[in-house]
């Protein structure tokens, strides 16, 4: 465990050592908040409503995409571009562990970003969060981030075999915006496209977080969180195998050092 934390901390330093603390704060707070504000203002005009709770909640969850999708998803991609992938591949370390280590601190930052994003967004857009259980809300965020991390692990494995990760990650980030229910009601999507909402992370945590704002069915709330966790677990398990397959494929197709 100590080794894991050490390695996670070094990975974190690698990512953020180039920027100052002030830049780090701005990057992790200002940029996500402006994104949140953009979608909330868009929703206010599109749906002609002053009750923006749904959009503040949904988009605060999407704030994690900056870290989860782009930081974790590009874990192998970055190592390939800098020639460090050789040391990782030839060493006995589990490649899954490498991504988990890279994602450990970013995932914690994601939880904090989402939580404070929600608080600040609520203050800006007059969302009353005094009536909700903030500890429960925080728990929903943690479950959502768990699920997102699994999904990001799965995405990262493609970094071993393709040099189009920018395209893949941007595509996925937009799929989350459209299909997670953060901005558009899932029920209004075409029936076939609703399947996408069911297999991606965040959909259920956003729904359960929204439930906290009204009287909610505890059974349904718990069930949604369990489903969200299951989605995460499934992605972790798939990632374990996909990373192994991707490593073998990369060695066969000689894509490890192609860029």
């Amino acid at each position: 465990m100590k080794r894991f934390i050490n390695q996670a901390w070094l990975s974190f330093k690698i990512r953020y050592a180039a920027i100052s603390f002030e830049e780090f704060l701005l990057l992790e707070s200002l940029y996500p908040l402006i994104t949140l504000a953009f979608y909330c203002i868009l929703a206010a005009y599109s749906f002609n409503t002053n009750n923006l709770a749904k959009w503040v909640v949904g988009n605060s969850f999407l704030l994690c995409t900056n870290i989860c999708i782009f930081a974790l998803g590009s874990a192998f991609d970055e190592e390939r571009y800098t020639g460090r992938i050789r040391s990782i591949i030839i060493s006995p370390v589990s490649k899954l562990l490498i991504v988990l280590e890279k994602g450990f601190f970013p995932a914690i930052i994601s939880v904090i970003t989402v939580f404070f994003g929600f608080m600040i967004g609520s203050l800006i857009f007059n969302v009353d969060f005094t009536s909700i259980n903030l500890w429960l809300f925080l728990f929903v965020i943690i479950v959502g981030m768990f699920s997102m991390t699994g999904f990001s692990l799965f995405l990262s494995s493609f970094g071993l075999i393709t040099d189009s990760m920018h395209f893949i990650l941007n595509l996925v980030a937009n799929i989350l915006i459209i299909f997670s229910g953060a901005n558009f009601p899932i029920t209004q999507l075409p029936q076939t496209l609703q399947v996408i909402s069911k297999i991606i992370p965040l959909t259920r945590s956003i729904e359960s977080a929204n439930m906290l704002f009204g009287g909610y069915d505890t059974y349904k709330f718990v069930w949604l969180l369990l489903e969200e966790m299951l989605v995460g677990i499934i992605f972790y398990v798939i990632s374990y195998f996909v990373i192994k397959i991707a490593e073998k494929t990369a060695k066969k197709n000689a894509t490890l050092e192609l860029f």
């Binding site: 050490n6 690698i14 800098t82 050789r86 040391s87 990782i88 370390v93």
Partner: peptide, 30 residues
């Protein structure tokens, strides 16, 4: 392996931290 050239190390880490990182890839005792 030792390959020539400047790629393959973490430029934003110190030399010691680089070696710590690579030692961890081999599950070396601290």
């Amino acid at each position: 392996f030792i390959f020539g050239g400047e790629m393959g190390v973490y430029k934003r880490l110190s030399a010691r931290d680089n070696l710590k990182y690579f030692a961890n890839l081999y599950y070396m005792d601290e």
